[in-house]
Design a protein around this nucleic acid. Structure first.
Lengths: 155, 155
DNA sequence: CCGTGATCAACAATCATTGCAATCTAGCCA
DNA sequence: TGGCTAGATTGCAATGATTGTTGATCACGG
């Protein structure tokens, strides 16, 4: 994605104000190597700006998404993920822990045969591989993972 | 998918009871040519069995899904869709009206290059084409410019 | 230094889905 | 056929992600 500086200019050019909140979000997204949820961005932002509201995070993420500066992904993991990586790529989704990994690979001509297009106008193509990530695949032997939102720091 | 009669046997064989509610759902799914949401199945069931509860529909759909008799799809259209079609196929999703069409096409070797697998164990692969279905696309054809969002012309 | 838009806070609302507890019944057996 | 019991159904509450609202405050940028 673009650098915080570029996004700053872009926002200004559109008449949008560049607030500290927005700058923080720009930075967080730019540094993100993964696909954070709104909640995750909020958590990250809150460490440096405790008063930021989740509402503002959603707002800015949506702004960025509708400007095409990030991609909003719904991979069925409960919450939307915001992908700062705009290059063509695909995703590996862990059914167990919900992790999303990028995959760069060229699968050649993946497009709808005109015969079966049914008048459909294709705007984007996504390939999602579902399965288990390295850690979860290793651990499947026993417990199916319940929604362990809270983890007792010591057990 | 299997016929209602087959599903009936299957349920019995698993010690699950075959209630009128379940039979209705079997029938509805079997006749479905599309990918109904739970709500849609509920609506269909309610016409012939007004007292059925949405809860029961969810329950049975989930049972069927975990038995592998239908596929639960989350295509980011807000609600999950239940696909009675178990053959390998892909989907065309209309971003405008949310319609989901099946697509039968062979894209050859679509699998994760081992180099990039990162230890991931792939269990399923889905290819989703997003765009506009014939009707929704038709609505925009009159205007050569589909989206009226302004683009920074002075870039 | 203004004006306008952004933010915040504190909810309420929505929507899909699931949890729960009380009630009911399918399927088996005598 | 009648009864029994595990499993099913139901209605409603609850959850979780996300958005709407409103009014007061704040600060970006001209």
């Amino acid at each position: 994605m673009r650098t915080p500086a570029e996004l700053t200019e872009l926002f200004r050019a559109r008449g949008l104000k560049v607030t500290p909140q927005r700058q923080a979000i720009f930075r967080i997204l730019h540094d993100a190597r993964i696909h954070p949820t709104a909640e995750a961005v909020y958590a990250a932002a809150a460490t440096e700006m405790p008063t930021i509201s989740l509402r503002t995070v959603y707002q800015t993420l949506n702004d960025l998404a509708s400007m095409g500066e990030v991609h909003a992904l719904d991979l069925g993991t409960g919450s939307a993920r915001f992908d700062p990586n705009l290059d063509a790529h695909h995703h590996l989704v862990c059914e167990s822990c919900g992790a999303v990994h990028d995959l760069y690979a060229d699968f050649g001509e993946v497009k709808v045969p005109s015969r079966q297009r049914q008048g459909f106008v294709v705007e984007s193509t996504e390939i999602v591989f579902r399965g288990r990530c390295a850690e979860c695949a290793g651990a499947v032997i026993t417990n199916p993972r319940p929604t362990t939102k809270e983890m007792p720091s010591d057990a």
